[in-house]
Deep mutational scan, measured.
Amino acid sequence: GAPPLPPYSAGGREVTMKKGDILTLLNSTNKDWWKVEVNDRQGFVPAAYVKKLDSGTGKELVLALYDYQEK
């Protein structure tokens, strides 16, 4: 199953993602919540729920390892 959710501390809205989604990583300075862009929406997802990909394009991409439903 998915890892436990860290307390929400990102101070911005969250976004929903599905397992297998490829998201653009915008900011990973917060260790628990990373800012991503998905379907032209920006928001935060739990860092433990995604994995960085080596895209080779200069853009940082992450793979959704679990479904996440915004609150």
Rank of each mutant, 00 (worst) to 15 (best):
Q42S: 13
A48C: 07
S55H: 10
A64Y: 01
P4E: 08
V38G: 08
G20I: 00
P7L: 07
G56D: 15
D54C: 10
L23T: 01
L5W: 06
E14W: 06
S55M: 14
L63T: 06
E60M: 10
G58P: 09
S28Q: 10
G43Q: 02
M17E: 00
N39S: 11
G56E: 14
G20W: 04
L63F: 07
M17R: 00
G58S: 11
A47D: 01
L63H: 04
G20T: 01
D21H: 04
Y8T: 15
K35L: 15
S55R: 08
G12L: 12
Y66R: 06
L65P: 00
L25K: 01
V15F: 10
R41F: 11
Q69T: 15
R13P: 15
L65T: 03
N30Q: 11
I22W: 04
Q69E: 13
T29D: 15
T24R: 11
W34V: 04
T16G: 12
K51R: 11
Y68M: 03
S9L: 11
K52I: 13
L61D: 04
Y49I: 04
A47I: 02
A64I: 02
I22R: 04
V38K: 15
A2Q: 11
Y8A: 09
V38A: 15
Q69C: 09
V45L: 02
D32P: 01
R13N: 14
L65N: 03
D21S: 06
G1W: 08
T29I: 08
V50R: 00
K59A: 13
W34D: 00
A48Q: 09
E14M: 15
F44G: 01
Y66A: 04
K59R: 13
T24G: 07
K18Q: 08
G58I: 08
P46F: 02
G58A: 12
D32E: 10
S55L: 12
L61T: 10
K35V: 14
D40Y: 09
T29Q: 14
K35D: 04
P4M: 08
E70N: 09
V36T: 01
K71E: 14
W34F: 07
D32N: 08
V15C: 08
G1L: 07
A10N: 08
L26A: 03
Y8L: 10
K19I: 05
L26W: 03
K31D: 13
L63M: 14
G12V: 07
A48F: 04
L53T: 05
V15T: 07
G43F: 07
E14K: 12
A47M: 04
K52N: 06
S28Y: 06
G56N: 13
T24F: 10
L25G: 00
V36Y: 00
A10M: 15
M17G: 00
A64K: 00
K35M: 15
